[in-house]
Write a protein that binds this DNA or RNA. Structure first.
Lengths: 216, 216, 216, 216
DNA sequence: GATGAATGAGCCTTCATTCAT
DNA sequence: GATGAATGAAGGCTCATTCAT
């Protein structure tokens, strides 16, 4: 029962299935992005990291550009699924849901040093690359709306004197800023933020905004 | 009395002084960073934007790498001076000082679309480029300490049940996240943040954390 | 009696005989040569045009180079057979034979847009590829000698004041030039040559050189 | 009077004028085309042949493709000027003009082994490269018309029973075919055509078509 | 026999840097 | 000081060839 039947398309086999190879290359891209940043990433790096040859990238992605776009899409979708699944918990109160969605950004699945660094790398390249904005915007809108809804309900429920949009924006931006801060801390030491400090900051904000719903 | 002392250092004069040329090139770098992003920036772009020849860059900065480092240093120092000068206002209360330092990040001097975009571009390239972290860290430490001090004093003064470090981190990260959000909004439209919304979010947080010191 | 002997060698059968597969690939090569030219031809193109996989080419021809050589050999031999068979007509006069051999170059069998284009493509790659010259030279020599013989006989027979070699060269070169001209006309429009105009030019030359043997 | 003042922009000077560099690179392209053929030509070859670095090609021509197009344009224009200037001889009869234009294709200026080979290389790549056809067609039309006019006049003048278009086509195609034949002879030996034999063939054709105007 | 994913050498192109003018 | 043509290393992409299936 506990045995896991490995599929025939393990990454190391000479002929892996298309999706497997693509994922393998996307993972390698994230790793290289984290190690060298966007501007210094080369397809040779990615191929080497994946343990494959350079030609394979254009074979599976047509171009470096499309590999990167696919990588961002992957991250965006994974991020989306993470908070979306969190909301699916049955029987959770509105406040619990808000906490789940907001603090869920620091889950082990998506909150890894490499993925964080990859996200920042993409953010930095948004200028002059409208495609990256496009890739994210649909997912982002859904997220923004979801958080806004929860804030609205809690505000009404608690009779808080707060503007939902402002609170939503504050929570979301704080999350982004903390990711940035944590990511900066990966490379060096002094005065940077740890994941648990990040969660505390977020929690403090929830408590502060909605004292009737959250306790430190 | 009739002599125009600025003449020799006008950017358009054929023989401008070193500092003037350097500033001219740094400004052009910021503009290109905003227009094309870090990875697509070329020295030819910068030179053209500055209305100068390519050769001049290596003459004044030795290399592209050093030009970019100088550009980041310029941004970091300008940012530093902005909040540091804000604190120098005589006779301001602690709460007023905190507000000044936190909302001062949205001053017209440093909060311009191009400079914002340039900052994001540099953040994205922090990975594998320790120099960029080094350039900022001294300034950042001072800032972190300054905000932390103010939070400590306000917490003590108001008897708030809050951990200064956590509040400091929340305020600073929110600021970063809002910059990110505003920058993203420069390129596209839906659901993004404006500068005034950013200030409101920051203000809401201050009010929420320190209700005795701040009112919406 | 009811057995269909051809079945096993139909091009579409999974296991076609070697000669059939080779011919299929040579035909595809001619088609690609005509569509894209020599320098842009890829084995993937050829394979796709033939409806086969890339691997099959090296299996049947060892290399791209050898496929192309085989293709040229095929064209050269087909061309050779075309005029050689024409000469085999029994009871034809010398003049008739010359006309058959010279105008036979415009027969439907060998004078097709694709084959013409393929020939021109090979001519263009003669430089630095002695093999192509070698492939053709044996066939060419035979042809040259045959046409020269016929010219000699007609000149002697008609008492013309002409040098056989010069006439032979003129006729053969005119043929080549007309092929070139017709091929050029395949891709565009204005002022180019049609097959019937080509035949007229050749005929006009025969009439002009040998008025006693040919009439327009 | 005999002293030739070399201009300041000799090809070997570090900063030659744009036209000089371009011509230098076009000449090198012709040489490489003749040595290796179209498909094997690399920009590294061209640069090396010109004694310059690879980067210079894209600097002066943007791309390999445009270098080749410029090369063909150069050949086409040079060819055009050659016969056009030949027609400018004052006091020449119509027959003399036809001879000048037709045999002028074998002038030392344009009839060199390298240029011949380059022409053939381009002819071979006409398929799928409409640009090459476009480059030549305007020049070609003018030429076709000029030869046609001369044929018309001679036919009328001599009362020949010939169709001008057919004669024109025969002369022009013979010229093309002879170029092809001579070019083939550059690389090998047996039974190929020399320049003088080519001129004889052309002359024989003129004599044959227009016996009252030309004598062998 | 046949397939097509995988490999990697080779080529075009870009661009930071140099240096003669 | 300033210019911009020239250099050449580095990187992305193509594609002939291989080989596990």
């Amino acid at each position: 029962m506990t045995a896991v039947t490995e599929t025939a398309t393990s990454p190391s086999s000479r002929k892996a299935s298309r999706p497997v190879r693509r994922q393998q290359l996307i993972d390698a891209t994230i790793a290289v992005l984290a190690r060298k940043g966007y501007s210094a990433l080369t397809v040779a790096d990615v191929a080497k990291t994946a343990g494959l040859s350079v030609g394979i990238i254009n074979f599976h992605f047509e171009s470096k550009e499309k590999l990167l776009a696919a990588c961002l899409s992957h991250l965006a979708e994974e991020y989306y699924r993470n908070w979306h699944d969190a909301l699916a918990v049955p029987g959770a109160s509105v406040a619990e849901r808000l906490q789940l969605i907001v603090l869920g950004d620091f889950n082990d699945k998506i909150f890894t040093p490499d993925k964080l660094a990859a996200w920042i790398a993409f953010w930095g390249e948004t200028q002059g690359r409208p495609i990256y904005v496009e890739i994210c915007s649909a997912y982002d809108d859904a997220r923004t709306r979801a958080v806004n809804d929860l804030c609205e309900k809690i505000i009404k429920d608690g009779g808080y004197k707060l503007v939902p949009g402002t609170v939503m924006r504050a929570l979301e931006s704080l999350g982004d800023g903390l990711w940035l801060g944590v990511a900066a801390g990966n490379s060096q030491a002094k005065f940077t933020i740890t994941a648990s400090q990040a969660r505390q900051a977020l929690q403090a904000m929830l408590v502060s905004f909605f004292p009737k719903h959250f306790q430190s």
